[in-house]
Amino acid sequence: MRRVLSPIFFFGALVVAWEALVRAGIWSPVMIPSPLSVGEYFWRAGMDGTLGGAMLVTLRRLLLGYFIGLLIGLPLGFMTARFRICKDTLGVVALGLQTLPSICWVPLALLWFGQTEVATLFVVIMGTVWSALIATDHGVRTISPIYVRAAMTMGSRRLHTWVKVILPASLPFIVSGMKQGWAFAWRSLMAAEIYVTILTGFGLGQLLHYGRELHAMDQVIAVMLIIILIGLLADKILFSPWERFLHRRWGTTE
């Protein structure tokens, strides 16, 4: 009960302090809107479908790019872990590109693909692939060789060993790699959406951008809150079940 009450009290107090600060009139309401006006924006934009539509557009881009990124990154990670030649070539490329902030892909994507969905997709994929690849590679490398040796004595070979031993043994690392990939994908998409106006869909990033253009601070803050909320929910829905499962099975600490 206490664990429910204390956050409610904390965030309630936060909102009250916010409202009090605004009423004190130190800053212009253009710079700091009251919680009430942010709430009003939520209501308005929620009812006319602006928020829902933007969320849908953003999530569609995110999920599509993220899963394509995983589909490319995970197998490549297994390959760099397995084959020396892949590690020395692709592995180096991955290490280099992972250090590149994803926003840096935007100019290139725009020149290649124009102001299209493909451009944002490309940026999200680039954000996901390399971190997923590196995490998988790291996971496969860190598993104890004793598992493979034990499996071999029991008659496991090649593909069976990969599917039944190496894959499950590296699962904890892969999940943390997927989580990291998600964080990168989310950040790169927001960067791309703020930077690039794409006429085929109006996402949260663009909503944020136009909030700035229109000097609509209530919109800016509301959209930021929604972006935070989506990040938190994704963590709870996409990753928490996995992490609980791993915790139960492996006995790893959370």
Binding site: I146, Y147, A150, T153, M154, G155, V165, P168, L171, R249
Partner: peptide, 17 residues
Amino acid sequence: PGRDRMVLFQESALFPW
């Protein structure tokens, strides 16, 4: 390696998954 010769390792080598 073959199933006619099984190994007991120093660490248990049991699969935690």
